[in-house]
Write a protein that binds this DNA or RNA. Structure first.
Lengths: 156, 156
DNA sequence: TATTGTTATACTCTATAACTATA
DNA sequence: TATAGTTATAGAGTATAACAATA
């Protein structure tokens, strides 16, 4: 599948596959540039994001982030040194710890999320409102169909 | 901007911003899973991809990949050890080298690209042909508008 | 002097394996 | 024994700074 598109100087054919890949890299770059303004790597940002609505154990975090528990342990330690998260002994299990955002961590993740929201809105505003709405709707349906096809509930 | 979407069990609101981010991560994961079947990291894959139609100098590669030249030098060295690329003295400049794919590197990058193409097609086929075409077209226009807004010529 | 590329060094991120403490 | 988490270790990836060779 290819699509004819207009640039100011020429009309080119961009395959749907290339488009998907380029869009993915573009979003990734925007997000990681925003995070780095707060001195955060993508990994640190994902960690903080995963803690926004939860106070999970290290194991639960490892599942959420799809990383080995040792990798997560390191991420937590570096975030802890920077005062962004804290480890609390689990009340239920003497072996486990609960990881949660500090006040500072919560503030950081809120700022990054707000900035990224603004970036994404400004990106989408390159299209007309009608086109942006259509794009958002199609993406949502694609994600829903993919989650469905893989037995994953994106919206748990 | 939010969009109502249907999952088999519920209707949820997914913001356009969340949709963009999730789509980006999904594509990234698909691509990196494909690359890793050939023992390639994303960085190595990007390097090989950048060499598909070019035999650039280290400096030119650094600009293309938006990395420091020392980072690129390391990427090249590791790819060279694995027989995927080679360094050739530049005919024009005694200080420079030209980096190019070996036969093996070319074969690898072709396979990864073909696999990813298949992945992307199968992802898009979760939508109707009409919707997939519309999505591809909107993404293309968004990318073109972004390139235009940033004075970058995506299609050089 | 300026530029091209490599190397030395340091840090983040990731995984595997070995370890401890608890269940 | 099994599980939760940490630590030791190794390697990729990245950047900065110092360097050698060439322009």
């Amino acid at each position: 599948m290819t699509t004819l598109i207009q640039s100011p100087t020429k009309t080119v054919e961009l395959s749907a596959v290339d488009g998907l890949a380029q869009l993915s890299f573009l979003i990734h770059d925007v997000l990681s540039a925003r995070a780095s303004r707060y001195g955060l790597s993508m990994s640190q940002t994902r960690l903080l994001g995963a803690l926004r609505d939860r106070a999970p154990s290290v194991n639960e975090l490892a599942v959420l982030l799809e990383l080995d528990k040792s990798s997560v342990s390191g991420l937590i330690s570096r975030a802890e040194e920077r005062g962004l998260v804290e480890r609390v002994p689990s009340p239920d299990d003497g072996r486990a710890v609960v990881v949660r955002l500090t006040k500072r961590g919560r503030s950081q993740v809120r700022k990054v999320a707000a900035d990224f929201e603004a970036d994404a809105v400004s990106l989408l505003s390159l299209l007309s409102y009608k086109d942006a709405s259509a794009l958002a709707s199609l993406i949502s349906r694609l994600l829903a169909a993919h989650a469905e096809a893989h037995g994953v509930d994106l919206f748990a």
